[in-house]
Design a protein around this nucleic acid. Structure first.
Lengths: 339, 339
DNA sequence: TAAAATTGTGTAAACGTTTACAATAATCTT
DNA sequence: AAGATTATTGTAAACGTTTACACAATTTTA
């Protein structure tokens, strides 16, 4: 029992395929009589329009592709939630693809996805989205989230990671820290670099004369623990730590407590991302918050504008959208003022 | 500049469309000469096969739809991660749709998705997936996750929620609790009901004679707090609590501590789900763990079998797959044995 | 009431693939 | 070296929609 087609419904309802199509698509130029005959025939046959045939005829897929680096945790679900909500409002489907080990795999995923979507929302922290242009037609709509895209036909949604990091450092300064350290993300990661730049900039401004003290982590809890061991092995230990993400801040916190160092009194800690865990550790962890849900939502809206409004392509596109993260103060930086 | 088609590539490479199609699809009955001409023409024109046309011709979408209740947190990202990984292995795309307020919206989402996918992986805690059959053709492949599906043409992946809850209760008994309470999920939720049944069953077995003490929550932290206020308002308070999910366990824990009751010494707490937060509260929270990632992965594989193997439909299908959750013992139930 | 405008319906041509089949060229058989 | 295979290529017919256009039936206009 193959699925019913337009033609089957037409036969059942004793009308032409054109009329069925009109009813199904909700056009108003049909008699009530025809409409009801078609509708009942359709539901009797459990008719489902063939999406492929539709997009062939209309050259519209009503689907956008979402390419994400790694499908992990809160961050991922929040961004998808934003995208999904916005997509529903725009009447679009979303096709997601995550966790691509290497570039080849990513390229493959893009290739096979491109033919089924009207545009793509991509987040590629390790590779430049410009490489997409070597595969995709120049006018294929792309919106990049948090990454560079030097491109005349794509938009960018970015988060001011550097500015956020700066806020973190300035906060450590404000609560009285004298010597601070940074646990960075991997060098290959674009956002990690920006956060490190923010740290360095803040150091120059507020902690004049201090040598940069940076441990390169990889965004895992374990890296946070390792950083502490490193910082306290030799040299003067810091009294304030800015971790490039919350998981590393959590790792640092637990390791500090294990070796008997008090947070925040001996060392203040601040993370980045505002994942839920930060509210449940003790002490709770200060952090820099980015409205991930909003980022996803705006990203999809942006792409939608590009799709709908052909003019749009040549006007606003260059400017893009920038999100400024916000400082969330919790217990891990509430040290007794020592100044 | 519209995207190039097969015909364009054929013209450029001086071959027929059939040959181009063969090269693109990796068939081996083409000369090396033709293959290389086609390949270079294709990359020169940045040719992307039109997915719609493809699925029209082959009647295969190479895409499966994933319908989830709510796109929130860890649970969601884990299940998608499992599905995504498995889909990549099977060469399938996934189309996701989440957060459906009411049934109508869900029906709409299903309708418009059905025509673009080869099968669906659905999780509908509030509605019976049998209602899908009123919309979809009888032979449309469906796999339901954690919900009933009395259907000859669909599979079920289920989690033994009842068995998991039983383990939790038995554990409370083993650590010496004398009187236990349950914070349930909403009545309308299928899994919540099963967990409550497990609680009741455990009560009958281990706590002979105790009246059931149940507070109906809604899976939020706030509900956990409210439950505590209720339990400690009047009557004999419990010395062991089983919450239907971890967030409510967290809420209960913090509320207990606020009103000066010690966990685990005065009251032991155990949750359900093993979300990451349970490892960072103090004390850490015991829980019942389900391998969500695995559930997603197996779910997709199951669906894939149905797609590939027509015979499959009439053999294994009824049995389905059941996951038995595992007990994770942490600090919140390590009370000094009082027996 | 005849001409003109409006409305509802049907016919048939796209849309871009895949693939059965026919046709041709190349390679084996004896 | 002629016939029989085999390997490569091309032609054309699906696949299930949408939609421009033509036509017929109705209503409006003068």
């Amino acid at each position: 029992m193959k699925g019913a087609t337009l033609k089957d419904v037409a036969r059942e309802a004793l009308v032409s395929v054109a009329s069925v199509s009109r009813v199904i698509n909700g056009l108003d130029n049909v008699t009530d009589d025809v409409r009801s005959r078609v509708l009942s025939a359709a539901s009797k046959l459990k008719y489902i329009p063939h999406g492929g045939a539709r997009s062939l005829a209309t050259s519209r897929n009503n689907t956008i592709g979402v390419l994400l680096p790694d499908i992990y945790g809160e961050f991922f679900s929040e961004i998808i939630r934003g995208i999904d909500q916005s997509a529903r409002e725009c009447g679009l489907h979303i096709m997601v693809s995550g966790s691509h080990g290497d570039l080849n795999e990513t390229v493959g995923a893009i290739r096979s996805m491109a033919g089924r979507v009207d545009g793509m929302l991509v987040m590629l922290p390790f590779a430049s989205p410009n490489s997409l242009r070597e595969i995709l037609p120049n006018d294929f709509p792309i919106v990049a989230i948090s990454s560079q895209l030097n491109d005349d036909n794509g938009g960018v949604i970015s988060v001011d990671n550097c500015g956020g990091a700066l806020k973190a450092v300035r906060h450590l300064y404000d609560v009285g820290c004298k010597r601070i350290a940074h646990i960075s993300g991997p060098q290959s990661n674009f956002e990690a670099n920006e956060r490190e730049n923010g740290f360095l900039k803040g150091l120059e401004t507020c902690f004049i004369g201090q040598e940069p003290l940076v441990f390169e982590g990889d965004f895992t809890e374990e890296a946070g623990r390792a950083a502490i061991d490193e910082f306290f092995k030799n040299g003067t230990p810091p009294d304030g730590i800015f971790a490039a993400n919350d998981m590393m801040a959590v790792g640092a916190l637990t390791r500090l407590q294990e070796i008997g160092i008090k947070v925040p009194d001996d060392v203040a800690i601040i993370g980045f991302d505002d994942i839920p865990i930060t509210r449940f550790t003790s002490p709770t962890i200060s952090t820099i918050r980015v409205g991930i849900f909003e980022v996803g939502k705006r990203g999809l809206n942006y792409l939608y504008s590009m799709l709908e409004d052909k003019e749009f392509q040549s006007t606003d596109k260059r400017s893009g959208i920038v999100f400024l993260p916000e400082l969330i103060i919790r217990a891990s930086t509430q040290k007794v003022r020592k100044v």
